[in-house]
Amino acid sequence: MHISDGVLPLAVTIGGYAASAGLATWSARRIHSRDLPKVAVVTSAFFVASLVHIPFGPTSTHLLLPGLAGALLGPAAFVAIGLGLLLQSVLFQFGGITALGANAVMMGVPAVVCGWFFQQFKGRTQARQAIAGGLAGALGTALAAVFLAALLVAGGEDFFGVAKLALAAHVPVIVIEGVISGFTIGFLARVKPVLLQSSFQDAAGPMHD
C-alpha cells in the first residue's frame, strides 16, 4: 500500500524526502557509476513484476517485492525501489508525489535490510537459498507494513485505527510474498545462481581502484 498525498504531516513528508535522498546517495555510492544504467533497466523488470496480481480467495493482491529486490540487488535496491516508486506515482498515481520520500523509506529500508539478511543466511544449497529467500520476502513485507503503520501514526491519534487496519491487511500479503519469493529464489538458484550474489555491488568492487 502506498501513501497518497495529503495524509502525512508536512514535517514527515519533508523528512521522508531528506532521509531518502541521503539513503539514495549512500546506495548509489555502493554501485559503480557504470552500473547505474543497468540498475535502471532491472528496476523496470521489478516494476513489471509488481504488476502481477496474485489471486487470494475472492480478491487478489499485487506484490510489493522489497525482499526480492534486496536479495537480488543488495544496497542498490534502495535506488531501484525509489525509482520504481517514482514511476508508480507519476504513471499510475499509486502513492502521492509529496509522500514519495516517505514511501521510498518505507519500502527501501526493508529491502536493504532483507538483502543483508539474505546474503548472511543463504548458505550453499538450493533448498536453503529458497528458504532464506522466502524468509527475506516475508520479512521485507512485514517491515514495510511496520514502517507504513509508524508513518501513519505520525499523523496523530486519529490515524491509529487506519494504522491497525493497514497492519492487519498486510498479514496475508506477508505469507503470499514469502512463498512467492521462496519459489522465485529457488528458481534462480537452479537456473542462474550468479544473480543471487547481489550483482551490482560485487561487480563494482574491484573497479573502484
Partner: peptide
C-alpha cells in the same frame, strides 16, 4: 514464482 524468476 518461476514466472518472476524468468523475468529477472
Amino acid at each position: 514464482g518461476n514466472f518472476l524468476g524468468m523475468i529477472f
